[in-house]
Design a protein around this nucleic acid. Sequence first.
DNA 1: AATTTAATGTTATATGAATAACAGTAATAG
DNA 2: CTATTACTGTTATTCATATAACATTAAATT
Lengths: 214, 214
Amino acid sequence: MKLLPEKTVERLSQYRRVLQRELASGTEHIYSHELAKLLHITPVQVRRDIMLIGHSGTLRRGYNIADLIDLIGIIIDCSGQQKVAIIGIGDLGRALLNYLQGSRTKLQLSAVFDNNPDKIGTLYGGILCHNVEHLKKIIKRENVTIAILSVPPAYAVEIANKLTEAGILGILNYTPVSLDVKGAFLEQYDVITSLEKVAYFAKPVNAAIMHQEE
Amino acid sequence: MKLLPEKTVERLSQYRRVLQRELASGTEHIYSHELAKLLHITPVQVRRDIMLIGHSGTLRRGYNIADLIDLIGIIIDCSGQQKVAIIGIGDLGRALLNYLQGSRTKLQLSAVFDNNPDKIGTLYGGILCHNVEHLKKIIKRENVTIAILSVPPAYAVEIANKLTEAGILGILNYTPVSLDVKGAFLEQYDVITSLEKVAYFAKPVNAAIMHQEE
DNA sequence: AATTTAATGTTATATGAATAACAGTAATAG
DNA sequence: CTATTACTGTTATTCATATAACATTAAATT
Ligand SMILES: NC(=O)c1ccc[n+]([C@@H]2O[C@H](COP(=O)([O-])OP(=O)(O)OC[C@H]3O[C@@H](n4cnc5c(N)ncnc54)[C@H](O)[C@@H]3O)[C@@H](O)[C@H]2O)c1
Ligand SMILES: NC(=O)c1ccc[n+]([C@@H]2O[C@H](COP(=O)([O-])OP(=O)(O)OC[C@H]3O[C@@H](n4cnc5c(N)ncnc54)[C@H](O)[C@@H]3O)[C@@H](O)[C@H]2O)c1
């Protein structure tokens, strides 16, 4: 079995979100061009992604929404088997926690860590904040496979090392520190990089070039 | 003049960040392999990016850090000419504001908008929060070119439309709503998509495949 | 029953990005 | 003063992704 392309996986996540909305509103089937429109992409892209995950639609009714949601769940998150931890529950960490808990993702947030004595022992969204000193122990014990890193930059490398030692399988790094982890999938995201990219393409002279090309 | 590749622009942003640190610590020149190491990429990638922006290093001393920082500034943000606004100053908006103000980006955050009467008129990081009803007027008057969108999902499309009508050139969209804007560069980012992507590649069976391939 | 239609499924091509290969050069060592 | 070294700069290739072209099929229409 071959791995799916990264971009396809990203879109599967988005397909699922809008499909959940459609299902909730009573729709049972959806055409590729309808799904495409909801995400502002092309129908071909949708069909190709769905082909890659081995699902089939019916010719005159499109795809069965419930089936597709289930299949995406099996592919992405084992339908609720994977556990997530947030390390560093400051401004960003709390914003992320609220957002995740308000969403329908099947990933279960099951631990939070910090080093601030005022935070340790308190509940965040119903989840107990642990002392980061017990990070390795708890990650192993609870079988957490994914970590969201939102500690101050100075601690990023140290925590990342502890996470890999604890056997973590995926890290989503929001610190502006480039990490190099072995044995785990690493995703880095930084607002400033994103914003400066927007700035470049939004510069009037560049915006003009982009526009004329369309 | 041709546009730079998106990925190159992203890396330029990251080069600048680490170069600013290096410069602050007294270093004047840097080799491609040193810069590469700081970001865990290859030296070839660094040289290629630098070639694309038309900069040259000296053969035995590498690149002049100050010059490179200046050039990246000219390319990305016109060295402080572009202005940024945040729409929706809730949990996420405030986390972003703090982060941007604590950074060295040359993009100047110069307006904040919300629709909550308790927030309108108060200062966030020294910046006055305006009533979102005056969005178009103020964006035009202040010549804001870039907007960060962090309002509740239900308002995303409406605000995006107002932004483009106001002549915005770039939008960084953090709402989980797929937008379709014309005349502006759009960048969308969603934590859940990122996290579910990590979940897929972190699934034990997939992690095994990834590892064996290296 | 044959034909048209409107959808899906698959293969081929084009584009974008990263990597690799190689060419060029100034300082240094012999 | 020639050869070596350790870099930078450019071109070629490979790999990933998106797009486009084409093939297929079940229902609806005539
Ligand atoms: N990637 C982005 O887009 C983005 C946006 C905003 C902030 N950030 C980054 O995210 C991180 C957090 O930002 P923030 O605004 O929430 O900062 P913050 O200071 O509000 O929160 C940091 C939290 O980490 C805790 N902490 C400190 N040291 C720790 C340790 N060793 N172990 C565990 N917890 C520890 C602190 O007690 C605090 O609760 C920073 O690195 C910041 O630069 C990134
Ligand atoms: N992309 C991500 O990774 C990510 C992460 C967290 C949250 N989010 C999204 O970002 C958005 C904000 O999240 P949050 O946690 O800060 O929510 P929040 O409720 O804390 O903040 C929303 C803010 O927008 C304001 N607002 C509401 N309607 C408005 C309008 N019409 N015009 C202007 N302001 C308005 C509210 O008063 C509030 O201050 C939501 O869409 C959320 O889903 C995205």
